[in-house]
Amino acid sequence: MKYRIKFSKYGSIIFIGHLDMMRYFQKAIRRAEIPIAYSTGFSPHQIMSFAAPLGVGLYSNGEYLDIELTQEVSTADMKEALNRTMAEGVEILSVKALPKNAENAMASVAAAGYFIQIRKGHEADLVFGEGFDDFMAQSSIPYEKETKKSRKLLDLKEGIYDYEVKEDGIYLLVNASSSGNIKPGMIMEAYYAYLGRKPSEFDFVVTREETYTKNEDGQFISLDEVGKDI
């Protein structure tokens, strides 16, 4: 039986990195006494996979992990049992049972929604969001991605599926698939460059609002819409 767990990260938990979040959930699942399946061998590990790693310092309202259980458990019970043992800053938002043929969390990620705000004390003289429509109206948004080995020229525009300039920040829906993942920081860098500016390291507070997959009709649906309550 496969289950998908949705959780949020807020408060001081944003400083816990992806690998430590995995360890955190392994222990939480033991504490909650969820009948998780284990791999075989001398050091068996829990069968668990995360949808998309979240960088240190990012908030989220839409993180996902899949687990496999050895027996059927009510999704409401599991949610409650997990929430009873969560540290402050992590909340289980939903637990869904997945259909047998469901793609695993990581492979099914297509897009992610982010909300970007200016960090307090970093406002400068800019009205955040100013000129963003013009920035988005460009025919292409070139971005040079530097990795340890190489430099690659990307067109960010292809990967920005939707956006909205709000009063207190900018919402972005972007490609988050393994082939074309776009980090919100890349877009902010390009946006600032468009304005003739350069952002400093800690200018933005980023919240991942949701992680999406595509349904058969090619529409974005949140990852937990794939499953159901049992």
């Binding site: 001081s12 939480a28 800053g89 960090r119 800690f202 507070v205």
Partner: peptide, 26 residues
């Protein structure tokens, strides 16, 4: 929620910020 003694900027700059935030289970 607890207010941390160190600012987010400091915590993001240093190695292993989890050393300083407390809030662990138990």
């Amino acid at each position: 929620m607890r207010k941390l003694a160190l600012t987010d900027e400091i915590l993001l700059k240093i190695d292993k910020p989890a050393r300083y935030i407390g809030g662990e289970v138990n």
